[in-house]
């Protein structure tokens, strides 16, 4: 009999945690160049009349997702680290699990990985160093990797390779982004690659492999290229 009650309590507990009142908010990140709303890794995209670009790698971390209501934080995702990779389209979709009836009108997140996490040793999941987003000769995550080919690069093979990151002063590259979402569900975010790439002096900066001032500047430009798919009415 006692065992029966115990088992029953266990069941109640398990059910409670599984079916706790929560709602799911889906997030989608779209990558755009001009009219192209999805970017494939081997196509060539025109930037303007003369210039074109081919992207072979675009991978970056979104971390520390927070929802805000009128600039007040009301929900923080725990263990919030998402590696987005354009060669794996499923990585651009993920879901937040919030308590039911959570009201928000802004989303806040980091582009990159914070310094505490960068100092925390070997981590798993999307942060696993075998994901190719960890520097080896100087510890720290690569926040954002962009590689490809463009006639803008004044190199023989026109290749560029930008590994942006660094968490130490004065080259801390992580960027914070806040976007107005209204009460949109799902939350649709655009990373406007054309806007970003036009701010990268690819003729001079085609190879960045360690923390530096340029790494910070190009990371800032990337952060400015994020927006909500359909802007709020008011």
């Amino acid at each position: 009999m006692k065992h029966g009650i115990f088992l029953f309590l266990c069941c109640v507990l398990i059910f409670n945690t599984i079916f706790a009142q929560s709602s799911i908010v889906k997030i989608q990140i779209k990558h755009a160049i001009g009219d192209s709303k999805t970017i494939c890794t081997d196509s060539i995209y025109r930037l303007n009349q003369h210039d074109s670009i081919k992207i072979t790698t675009l991978r970056y971390y979104i971390s520390g997702i927070e929802l805000l209501l009128n600039n007040q934080s009301i929900w923080i995702e725990t263990n919030s680290f998402h590696l987005i990779d354009i060669s794996d389209s499923s990585s651009s979709f993920f879901a937040l699990k919030l308590p039911q009836n959570t009201q928000y009108n802004q989303i806040k997140f980091n582009l990159g990985i914070d310094s505490i996490t960068s100092n925390a040793g070997a981590l798993g999941g999307d942060l696993d160093p075998s994901k190719g987003m960890y520097w080896s000769w100087q510890s720290g995550y690569i926040n954002l990797k962009l590689e490809g080919k463009s006639n803008l690069c004044k190199t023989n093979n026109q290749l560029f390779q930008l590994h942006l990151g660094g968490y130490l002063y004065p080259y801390s590259a992580m960027q914070q982004i806040v976007l107005n979402t209204c009460d949109q569900m799902p939350i649709c975010i655009v990373f406007d690659l054309e806007k970003w790439i036009q701010k990268i002096p690819l003729d001079l900066q085609h190879h960045i492999m360690s923390p530096s001032n340029n790494s910070v500047l190009i990371s800032k430009a990337a952060a400015q290229a994020f927006r909500i798919c359909t802007p709020c009415e008011k």
Binding site: S118, N119, A120, G121, A122, P129, S130, K131, G132, M133, Y134, W135, S136, W137, Q138, S139, G140, I142, H163, M209
Partner: peptide, 28 residues
């Protein structure tokens, strides 16, 4: 002091300079 944690020390010798961040995947 380039390495900030013992756990990530092994990455330094494992990775090849021209393919930074690439070859640890292949070790795994």
């Amino acid at each position: 002091g380039a390495i900030n944690h013992l756990d990530v020390q092994a990455l330094a010798p494992i990775n090849h300079p021209d393919e930074m961040g690439e070859s640890f995947d292949s070790v795994v």
